[in-house]
Design a protein around this nucleic acid. Structure first.
Lengths: 186, 186
DNA sequence: GTCTATAAAGCGATAGAC
DNA sequence: GTCTATCGCTTTATAGAC
């Protein structure tokens, strides 16, 4: 049965999409109101801290999603190779093969980084450490695993930039294929 | 002797820095006025098209700089290996070892991409083709060179994202070292 | 060519009725 | 919890004096 009264969490996906498409400065409250279907008054009822709290909540939800679906399996799954394989599948789907921007990466480049330094850093640190842990479980030395994890994260972010610049999903697909190979060999 | 009357070109570096730090939406005319030391009236005298023309001119100048210092040597220098070596040196200096954002990359991720699609794409296409041409002159097959050039560009952009997220120049330095090695071997 | 004053619109945020 | 109306401020852009 459909819910009449909104919950804070129900608003986050629509808000995330607005921030992804317009950035922090470009995402106006009017636009967020339009895209969530909720009036300004209601938005400020759920987020008294205004736009900054909205973006903060979105980043929180993103980190939670990645923790559940990607970071945790990488950290703890007994089958590390399978966890890495599922990471790549999840990444391709989540970023829609490069058509969807990584909000955290976009925030890292923009002035909004200064507002959300901690959350931006936390997201990438968790990802890097989880991936490195999986690589160690696959038999690699810790320093090599750290270096490799950093390389993979940079390649993902970089190919998201290029995929959007060229408007070409193939760029992202090629990058993912190469990364799987790089991780597989050596 | 100091020039009293400003020239359009003299304003571009300061404007570029403002756009880099605040993004397109975040860079207000008031801020640009403050940082260029020129009143709003004068700014609109040089750029009747307003902020969009200012950002467009900045992108133009960036492409011209890269063409002169990086793309042209990659395309035409008889010593391709040396041109690539100088590309890495220039990139490290230009991006201040990862502390300075790539404005074109930031625009590619942001909503401003839609305004500047052509210029964003042109920048990356020129870079990729010039680098691939140098790799071909070094003896690589064309398809391999194309793929490798794409990998290098993505790694540069991605490590700029990570370097800013972690606020750590070492991330960028490690990436450049690895890329030099990757290009050298095989 | 440079400036100040100002217009018109949009912004984030709040108040208060329901 | 949701809405409309509104405040105060900043925004882009223009007009016009010098």
């Amino acid at each position: 049965m459909a819910k009449i009264v909104s919950e804070r969490a129900d608003l986050l996906p629509a808000m995330a999409e607005v921030f992804r498409e317009h950035g922090f400065e470009g995402a106006s409250i009017a636009l967020i109101s339009e895209r969530t279907g909720l009036g300004k008054g209601s938005l400020y009822h759920f987020f008294p801290g205004g736009k900054e709290e909205m973006a903060g909540a979105v980043l929180e939800e993103i980190e939670a999603w990645f923790t559940t679906h990607i970071f945790a399996p990488l950290q703890w799954d007994s089958d590390a190779a399978s966890a890495i394989d599922r990471m790549f599948r999840a990444v391709v789907e989540y970023f829609d093969s490069g058509r969807r921007v990584c909000l955290v990466g976009a925030f890292a480049l923009a002035s909004s980084r200064d507002r959300f330094t901690k959350q931006v850093r936390s997201y990438f640190r968790m990802w890097k450490e989880a991936l490195a842990a999986a690589l160690v479980r696959m038999g690699r030395d810790k320093p090599v695993a750290d270096h490799l994890a950093e390389e993979v994260l940079a390649a993902i972010q970089g190919s998201l930039v290029l995929a959007r610049a060229f408007d070409d999903r193939a760029v992202f697909a090629r990058s993912m294929t190469r990364l799987r190979r790089v991780i597989g060999e050596r």
